[in-house]
Design a protein around this nucleic acid. Structure first.
Lengths: 291, 291
DNA sequence: CTAGCCTTCTATCATACATTACAGACACCA
DNA sequence: TGGTGTCTGTAATGTATGATAGAAGGCTAG
């Protein structure tokens, strides 16, 4: 184990020290560390109680944590945080300074940045369509089918997993066109097909959509900004920016859209979904670990 | 959803407001204003007593000062300072967001904002671990297994789909413990298990991880900031902030981590992966629609 | 010169707070 | 299986803290 108490003068930034020593902490202390790093430094400038709540632990654990960092008291810790952060704000305000010695913009930062912009764009595009989409998905008289392509089927899977917890009659159309004819057979007029289709658009997904339309289903399409050909068949289209500096397009945007829609559906269903979630939780209890 | 705070959110920054209104203050209050602006924002994050001493005035004057700014209590004032400064530290992009959404808090924007912060946090946590993780995943002599829980298996699926395009010997351990024993059987010392485990942690995933460790596999764990118990078994842990204002935790962060890792693996593999992608594209051509 | 008002401080109070002590839970080892 | 050490949350405690009331100072108006 490394030296417990370092000298009074913090040679390197507190942030770095926490990150470096995180492996030597106990489990609860690690939660504290990550709560701090997640909202650095302001999490540590709140009261002990609020800091503890944020880290889902108790006050004493916070104090043990800051003791292990070498501070005599919580006040000392906050002083150090304040001084360090003030110095940081004094200097050039570039956010890259915050990353510590890594003078080069750290590996994933550019990607993260791009993803964040994509989410922003998708949320903008989604907003006007959201009420109509939610209206359909919260209508328990309609069946809901989720389907996606080679990659995007994972996104469809997420929507399916979420919706299934909120309402009945949600199904996931799985990969491999074998059973698709059977899936189509059950589609009734007014049912909802949520299609996720990103480049490169797959022929079979298009075929499925055509079949669904023939059954008078309504189509909600989540696609990229280059528009899948399915857009021509869809009642509601959400366009996601998916470009990131990588060989692949990003799936993050689509998943973000799914989660925004899900949250809105929960709102729309209100208490009806609450009970269902509670029941599910109870049924699953034996399979989960404590807490 | 929880009620939104009704407190008046200042359209412009606190700093600007103080600077603008400084002429309307009394003499003692002006000293307070200058003390705050001189060491902004940390002067205001200390206790009232210390703030007063710094401004060479008394406690009540401080309180009247912050009352005049429109805050009910000193705590409210500090909260506002913290939120504002945190946003400022987050970088120019986030600051822009806060201003933009002040006018019209469109549906979904708050969720989008939370997701973006989560990605930011995860990218920070990932950065130091990234080289080691990439090193393992780019080592073609090691087999790679991806596994996740009820929700996170979709994330595992994404990693699997990506990696499969880049290198051989990548497998996805599918849901339902039935075939897991068989999957474990093939695990050789030095193989890599990438585990995605978010609340609520499932017992069976933990069991699988234990089994893999027994086979001397190396574990890369992507979990939430509350740490899955698997962390105790893992060589590399990436902690993702997953809280969003919704009934469910967000899966977006985990997927973002996957894509950042993937991009880094592509870099590490270099030309070796390029050829493989090209081959795959050619093989798939018949199933895709034109461009 | 004084009455009235505004400003600012001192002194006091209730309480929210950090901190300490304790005990249950858990894992590990004999 | 019982013993030992570690970890972590609950409860109790004294204090430091924010808040308030009231008095002293000082300015302006009449």
């Amino acid at each position: 184990m490394t030296g417990v108490h370092t000298s009074l003068r913090p040679a390197q930034s507190l942030q770095d020290r926490v990150r470096r020593d995180v492996s030597t902490f106990t489990e609860a202390e690690r939660r504290v560390a990550h709560a701090l790093l997640g909202e650095y430094p302001m999490a540590g400038l709140e009261t002990v109680a609020r800091f503890a709540k944020r880290a889902e632990t108790s006050g004493p654990t916070i104090l043990r944590f800051i003791n292990r960092l070498g501070f005599e008291s919580y006040a000392d810790f906050q002083d150090a945080l304040r001084i360090e952060t003030q110095a940081r704000l004094q200097g050039p305000l570039s956010r890259y300074d915050l990353l510590g010695q890594a003078n080069a913009p750290a590996a994933g930062q550019v990607l993260a940045q791009a993803m964040r912009q994509n989410i922003e764009g998708a949320a903008r595009d989604l907003a006007p369509n959201l009420p109509a989409i939610v209206d359909r998905l919260a209508d328990l008289d309609r069946k809901v089918l989720c389907i996606g392509g080679r990659f995007s089927q994972m996104i469809a899977g997420y929507l399916h997993a979420y919706l299934r917890e909120l309402r009945p009659n949600v199904r996931l159309v799985r990969d491999g066109s074998a059973s698709w004819a059977d899936d189509l057979l059950d589609v009734a007029p007014g049912d909802i097909i949520v299609v996720f289709d990103f480049r490169r658009y797959q022929r079979d997904v298009l075929e499925f959509a055509k079949g669904a339309v023939a059954q008078q289903a309504e189509i909600i399409l989540v696609t990229d900004i280059w528009y899948s050909p399915i857009a021509a068949l869809a009642q509601h289209v959400v366009a996601c920016p998916v470009s990131i500096p990588s060989a692949f397009d990003s799936g993050v945007t689509g998943l973000a859209v799914v989660e925004i829609i899900t949250a809105a559906v929960i709102d729309a269903l209100g208490p009806r979904s609450k009970g269902r979630i509670a029941t599910l939780e109870a049924l699953r209890k034996p399979f989960n670990l404590g807490s």
